[in-house]
Simulated assay, not measured.
Amino acid sequence: MIDLIFLEDDPILGAELTEFLTEIGYRVTFVTTLAEFDAAFEPGRQRLAVIDVGLPDGCGLSVIQRLRQSGDRLGVVVFSARSTTLDKIEGLGIGADHYLGKGCDLAELSATLEALCRRLELTNNDAPWRLELGPRRLFLPDGTAVSLSQQDLLVLRCLMEAPGESISRRQIIQALGGDYMSYDQRRLDTQMRRLRRKVLESGGQALPVNTVRNSGYCFYAETQVRA
């Protein structure tokens, strides 16, 4: 996983976004103040940062300024309620790579981080997630095997044969042998929740599947599919 440090003073929002960032494939260190950031930041290990501006002990832009003055190549995304044009100009001028308002869709945050990873040539060196069709098993990167139902297998095959791509609900339902127009899509949502829970409880890792709002799902980690 790529390590990311997340600075946000709102504990509820911070917990929600930490969960989201973890679900889309990052190893997150969550801090709430500038002092906690300085104590937790490890140059060379954490290569991405998501930083709020308004903090109880100062301004998040001061962190970015210090990082840039030290020559650190950390990829930085400002994620702030202060999102006027002047705010963005100031943040980008100090050295942020991207500046997003907190009202943006989380899919935009995800896409921004992915683009930043590509530009900085950051790669995930974890072993791939492996799906074995015959035995109906999912192997996690650490080698843990999770037994699957036939429905689980069909959903994962649909997603894992096209890692990094958004797979529509229609495609998944058709892979399950259902008719999209008459299929109760709540069944698909329930199955995805059960599948995520099964993988987490069996292997201790979150299934790397991102929900694409109003569209479908995306398996965002490296995969192998074997007969």
Rank of each mutant, 00 (worst) to 15 (best):
I2Y: 02
F6C: 04
D9P: 01
D9Y: 06
D10Q: 14
D10M: 02
G14C: 08
E19I: 09
F20N: 11
E23N: 12
E23T: 08
Y26G: 03
L34G: 09
A35V: 13
F41I: 09
E42L: 13
P43W: 04
P43F: 04
L48F: 01
V53W: 07
L67W: 08
L74C: 14
L74W: 03
G75I: 04
G75C: 08
A81E: 10
L86C: 06
I89G: 00
G91C: 01
G93S: 10
I94R: 00
A96C: 00
A96V: 00
H98E: 12
H98T: 06
H98Y: 12
Y99Q: 03
C104Y: 00
A107W: 01
A111I: 05
R119H: 13
R119L: 09
E121T: 15
N125D: 15
R130H: 12
L131D: 05
E132T: 11
G134T: 15
R136P: 09
R136H: 13
P141H: 07
T144R: 12
L148K: 09
Q150P: 02
Q151S: 15
Q151T: 15
D152V: 02
L159Q: 04
L159E: 02
E161T: 15
E161D: 14
Q171E: 11
Q174H: 11
A175L: 07
G178N: 06
G178H: 07
M181C: 05
Y183N: 09
D184A: 04
L188K: 07
L195Y: 08
R196W: 06
R196T: 14
R197F: 05
R197S: 11
V199Y: 02
E201Q: 13
G204P: 08
Q205C: 11
P208C: 10
V212F: 04
R213H: 15
C218G: 06
F219D: 03
A221E: 07
V225W: 10
